[in-house]
Design a protein around this nucleic acid. Sequence first.
DNA 1: CATGAATGAGGATTCATTCAT
DNA 2: AATGAATGAATCCTCATTCAT
Lengths: 210, 210, 210, 210
Amino acid sequence: MIVKSEALTSRGRRTRAALVQAGREAFEERGYDAVRIDDVCARAGVSHGTFYTYFGSREDLFREVAGAVVGEMFAASVVGTGVPEDPYARIEAANLLYLRAWASNSRLVRMLEQAATTDEGFRELLLELREVFVRRGAEGLRRLQEQGLADPALDPRLTAVMLGGMVEHFAHVWLDLGEQADERTAVAMLTTLWARAIGLTPASIGRERS
Amino acid sequence: MIVKSEALTSRGRRTRAALVQAGREAFEERGYDAVRIDDVCARAGVSHGTFYTYFGSREDLFREVAGAVVGEMFAASVVGTGVPEDPYARIEAANLLYLRAWASNSRLVRMLEQAATTDEGFRELLLELREVFVRRGAEGLRRLQEQGLADPALDPRLTAVMLGGMVEHFAHVWLDLGEQADERTAVAMLTTLWARAIGLTPASIGRERS
Amino acid sequence: MIVKSEALTSRGRRTRAALVQAGREAFEERGYDAVRIDDVCARAGVSHGTFYTYFGSREDLFREVAGAVVGEMFAASVVGTGVPEDPYARIEAANLLYLRAWASNSRLVRMLEQAATTDEGFRELLLELREVFVRRGAEGLRRLQEQGLADPALDPRLTAVMLGGMVEHFAHVWLDLGEQADERTAVAMLTTLWARAIGLTPASIGRERS
Amino acid sequence: MIVKSEALTSRGRRTRAALVQAGREAFEERGYDAVRIDDVCARAGVSHGTFYTYFGSREDLFREVAGAVVGEMFAASVVGTGVPEDPYARIEAANLLYLRAWASNSRLVRMLEQAATTDEGFRELLLELREVFVRRGAEGLRRLQEQGLADPALDPRLTAVMLGGMVEHFAHVWLDLGEQADERTAVAMLTTLWARAIGLTPASIGRERS
DNA sequence: CATGAATGAGGATTCATTCAT
DNA sequence: AATGAATGAATCCTCATTCAT
């Protein structure tokens, strides 16, 4: 079902936003299947009837929440101004953003993964999300290859999938499974492994620890 | 309450095994929350009353299934006889086993991850599973470092977590999300990235494509 | 509580009429119990809050619609000018009007019947409706009996109830249940059966097929 | 959904029958739309969960009830042994059965009519029910025509539809709408009208009041 | 041991109705 | 007059679990 959102008064918009926010928190805390619609309503301070004014089902709400999360991750992944010139530093900056983006939404993304196994729409959203990060990684590598700074034999996409996966997965074991590490060390390590894996040339690597 | 196999007649043992098998298939196909006890019983060809002769709840059954899966993965992760001497080939062999082990149980492991967010017992099982692979990776790296074949500055455990995560995660995107790659290429790529990341010395890398 | 038209502005009268019309269509199409107040409002192009400005409930609305339908049927049942002198032709003309009147409101009349099982008010309206047709039929028969053209032994009311029922019921099976017949044939047949049943004398019947 | 009825134990059969009986009474008393599943369960003395062991929905239950009613009407419509030889008496006997069959199930048949407007399955059941009575009437007429006792010009089916409708409809107004008449008078009247309408020859009619 | 009938807590959903704007 | 957001009573339906046979 299509999420209802057209033509709302400001009061309506507020209520709707409260439901989305409450839903997001509930999903985070309890996981998709444990969330009861009445929980969300109680959290948002509305009656359960009101829920159905804005959403047709829990899935509808999750669609909305997932969309918002993906949007935020897109926004967060954009390397802002002041990109360093040094390739190594650039990889490091990207990894920091990458790690944070996935870490701060770890639970919801995994719920999206779960939903994707059942629902085609969620699957597409998930693939779209991954694609953004994969593409960014692949393009970064291609640029380095063109500059003669990285191994030209590597397939950019597959490399990006694998190394990106390393970052994503680390975000998960780090935050969800309690693997001990401080962020600085983690990012440094991920960057070292990434840089070496793509064969970033010694000239750059030389600056690694300076 | 799980009735253990030991106390059962052979008929009982057969029924129990049928339930575990049916449960495993059902979990694989539909995901934890979507599995109804009746589904499992129908698949096993027993009445739902019988289920409670052997298991106290769906969670009990899943515990059993998860235990079996983890056991299989342990077994599968053991590099058998005829380990190559060449470090690169050894990494490659390990990666192949690693990839296959995770790929063939991807769905169930992710269910275990999900269950781990709620249930302490499952969390421990999951950590135990990961630990086996992390340890194996860390020890391999430590040996290479001792032999002077890998960068001695790398923290073995963290490196193993990250590079192991790369393999695990690739298994997931490859099989569950449809990322295109054939196994041979994937393993070669994972091995290249892994070897370079740990700074496997040129001597070995030189043999990479021979 | 029904707000009557008299106290309304012209805008109000228009809105009210739109609701009645929309309700009539909705009842026709979906049946009493399946009609939601929101359906009616949507069809009338007003918000559901507005409904309660004019009607207190769905039943109120149906009361209005039923009243309008009954009124139309009364009007339609009046044999207009140019009544034929020939008794047979007169019966035929009446049957045609009768058939059309019931056929064109078949669904709503049956809803009224349904409503009548529960609600005394609807029951009275229904009885009133039937009474008009029964009386007309009974009077027609009495006149023929007085003229010596019909069997004087027949009880006029009971005869009218039964033969009128034949027409009503045929209207239903013809239009609602798909019994095949063209209007001309149906009316001819109903008239033949009616005329013979009351023993319309040969003098008249002789003209039947001329 | 298909009604579940296969492979029941005797206890199950008893429970199921209790639900059907309770449903029948509830439908009779309150009408389809007013029947709550819990009402039926309370009446049958079972919990509402049990209802769903045997039926998937209220509609399913009604299907069953309607089927039973139609079956009974079929059985009741069969003119038993000792059929009179006299055509008039035969029509009278048939009308008595006809009237009783429809009168005793008037409410449920009208519910079936209502259901038929929405559901194809119910429509077919209704048409089947009508067809049995229509055919019986048409065949009776055809026999009389062959024996030269009834007007050979009448279309047997259409005549049966119309005169049968007269009986059906009278059953309704008599029992549901309170039209005053005792059964004996009603049957005599229906028979007189029916016999005359088909032009039953004076020879037979002569015996009418003997 | 196995069966399957019965139970009822739990949760989803609808929709008539109210009311502040 | 009209709006549409909010409400919550009323129902439906599922499914884990118990228990007599």
